[in-house]
Nucleic acid binder design. Structure first.
Length: 596
RNA sequence: GGCCCCGUGGUGUAGUGGUCCAACACGCUGCCCUGUCAAGGCAGAGAUCGGCAGUUCGAAUCUGCUCGGGGUCGCCA
């Protein structure tokens, strides 16, 4: 070993001890005779003092040191002189008086400063990712990820889960996301695909009798990237046999409470994760991934505003639309430009625009038309206006925001406004993880473009037992045993109780419109396995990148992935993807046609 | 594929038709300095302003195309 102790590990109690340290020159402060070096390693930073009166040779070498050089230093730990302590460093009360130094490696001047935390061009960061990862923030992010992963292993191991690896080279299944494919040399013209998730394999493992499986699994999809989407992401994938929905939810709830307590012991987290039905979530929050750190709620005003003289409302109701409102508390005096900003937000996202309503400080019952300020107050009778104020609980210092239009658009718009208002008014609790399960999703959703049913989640989700009978008559009425875990407005994962019966699975394929030849081509293995005693089973897939990003307060998952790709799925560090040799192409029997 | 933002010494920014052969901070190089930790002082090097084409007497600045990065919609069961 080159070192006896980590730079960040030394404390006052070590005074007088002689240690060897090794690490990188974080910062050099040269006072002529006296030279200070902040030495950094994976454990932190410590100040090394080079004093010519203590060691002439060491001081001479220290003169040549530059940022990011790798050095080994021997010296004695000493309490800093009074007034020279640095409260920003864990090692700030002590320092090391160097007696020996060895330069282990020099460094070119880095393309950006490792010891500073400023926004560098993403391309440059990724090209020099090895330097970027040296930054203390990135070190912390990646280590947090390790701690989370370790905690998952510990927790699930204690609960009798078995970690099982599944293949990366699997069969391509064209539904869902676009597959990454790998050509086969042995079977020319044939391709493997990289898994979008280990879904079918883990279900087969349940048929195999493992009962409790988990895997920290890499998942691939060839789709466009986002701040929270990379071509490959990691999910905690688990599956359990002989369980009902609540068994799965309770396990995940315990696991996530355990993880949060490990990483942020002081964070606020619900003792019991609320279970909110999909319908309620859409009605009350306008979205299936509500941010529950604040409790603004939408109110339905469709009935209240029916049969008015206001054209917009009537047209909306005639075309099966809805009218909903959201109270922005204390925003009575919002200026024209503030309201226009809200309006713009909605319009930019394809929404209809927003109506506002405010009222005077008279008692609700005494309100008259002139007490209510709104674009439509003259067209809606006073009783209905009062009722809308009563239902929405719009007080004198509040601002009622109203949207009218199709159900989808209104919910989407008000959900955006809900988040925006909360942010503007500082209603979002910090250091809080407001987890919830969204449950009772419909099993199918109608695909307007193709005029057919699509699976809401995936094709293996089981209907609620009492809804199985609708498979033949009303697929749209079926509620699935299907659930999402959401936290602070982010979907962290979803899961379901699966179908374990061949007939039901075939009916679902049928509703989605797969022909029997398609079904046997893609799903014959899992269907056949179901005929050999498949146990009832269910599980989840939970995004690890998003979870860790949330835990360390990052908005992009690139900050918690060691070697991520750019928005064009390119890796500037290793220059990937790249051409392959003609020999490789020949072996694979592939020709590249140059696109014009 | 659509829309939006960004691209100026090594890094981050300012400059948005002539006052700019480009400014500031950090970094870098050299010198001075024994208590700094965003060290300080002095001196210096370093950029044809992402690329190409155009408009103009004149372009970092305006226009078109293009490349790269980011965000977002589509897409992502």
């Amino acid at each position: 070993m080159y070192k006896d102790i980590g730079c960040g590990e030394v404390r006052e109690k070590d005074e007088g001890k002689i240690f060897r340290f090794a690490g990188w020159v974080h910062k050099r402060r040269d006072h002529g005779s006296l030279i200070f070096i902040d030495l950094r390693d994976s454990k932190g930073i410590i100040q090394i003092v080079f004093d010519p009166s203590k060691s002439v040779d060491s001081h001479k070498i220290a003169l040549s040191l530059r940022s990011e050089w790798v050095i080994e230093v021997k010296g004695s730990v000493k309490k800093r002189i009074k007034g020279a302590e640095n409260p920003n460093l864990l090692t700030g009360k002590i320092e090391v008086i160097a007696t020996e130094i060895k330069i282990l490696n020099k460094s070119k001047t880095p393309p950006f400063e490792v010891n500073e935390d400023i926004n560098i061009d993403e391309n440059l960061r990724l090209k020099y990712r090895y330097l970027d990862l040296r930054k203390p923030k990135m070190q912390k992010n990646i280590k947090t990820r390790h701690i989370v992963t370790k905690a998952i292993w510990d927790f699930l191991h204690e609960k009798d889960f078995v970690q099982i690896e599944t293949p990366i080279l699997i069969k391509s299944t064209p539904e869902g996301a676009r597959d990454y494919v790998v050509p086969s040399r042995v079977h020319q013209g044939n391709f493997y695909a990289l898994p979008q998730s280990p879904q079918q394999m883990k279900q087969v493992l349940m048929v195999s009798g493992f009962e409790r499986y988990f895997q920290i699994a890499r998942c691939f999809r060839d789709e466009d990237l986002r701040a929270d989407r990379q071509p490959e992401h990691t999910q905690l994938d688990f599956e359990m046999s002989f369980v009902e929905q609540d068994d799965v939810l309770n396990l995940v709830e315990d696991l996530y409470k355990y993880l949060i307590r490990k990483i942020s012991p002081n964070a606020e987290i619900p003792e019991k994760f609320p279970r909110i039905s999909f319908k309620e979530s859409m009605d009350v929050y306008g979205t299936d991934k509500p941010d529950l750190r604040f409790d603004l709620k939408l109110v339905d005003l469709t009935d209240v505003f029916s049969n008015s003289d206001f054209g917009v409302f009537n047209k909306t109701i005639d075309s099966n639309g809805i009218i909903k409102g959201l109270v922005a508390p204390g925003c009575f005096s919002y200026s024209r430009s503030q309201i226009s900003e809200l309006n713009q937000l909605i319009v930019e996202n394809g929404g209809p625009g927003v109506f506002t309503l405010t009222r005077t400080n008279k008692k609700n019952n005494d309100l008259e038309v002139q007490d209510i300020k709104s674009a439509f107050s003259k067209f809606v009778n006073i009783e209905k206006l009062k009722e809308s104020i009563l239902i929405s609980k719009c007080e004198e210092d509040d601002l009622l925001l109203i949207c009218a239009g199709s159900k989808k658009i209104v919910n989407q718009s008000l959900s955006l406004l809900r988040n925006k208002i909360a942010e503007d008014l500082n209603l979002i609790k910090t250091d809080s993880f407001s987890f919830a399960f969204i449950v009772d999703f419909p099993l199918f959703e109608w695909n307007l473009d193709e005029e057919k049913w699509d699976a809401m989640h995936h094709v293996f989700t089981s209907p609620k037992d009492e809804h199985i009978k609708y498979l033949d008559s009303n697929p749209g009425d079926i509620i699935g045993q299907l659930f999402d875990l959401v936290c602070n407005g982010v979907e962290l994962g979803s899961g379901s109780i699966r179908i374990h019966n061949r007939e039901i699975q075939e009916k679902v394929f049928n509703i989605i419109g797969y022909s029997s030849s398609e079904v046997s081509e893609r799903f014959s293995t899992i269907l056949e396995s179901f005929e050999y005693g498949a146990p009832p089973h269910g599980g989840m897939g939970l995004g690890l990148d998003r979870l860790v990003a949330m835990l360390v307060g990052e908005s992009s998952i690139r900050e918690v992935i060691t070697f991520p790709k750019t928005q064009t799925a390119f890796d500037p560090l290793f220059d990937t993807p790249s051409l392959i040799s003609n020999q490789q192409l020949t072996e694979l029997n592939l020709d590249i046609h140059n696109k014009e």
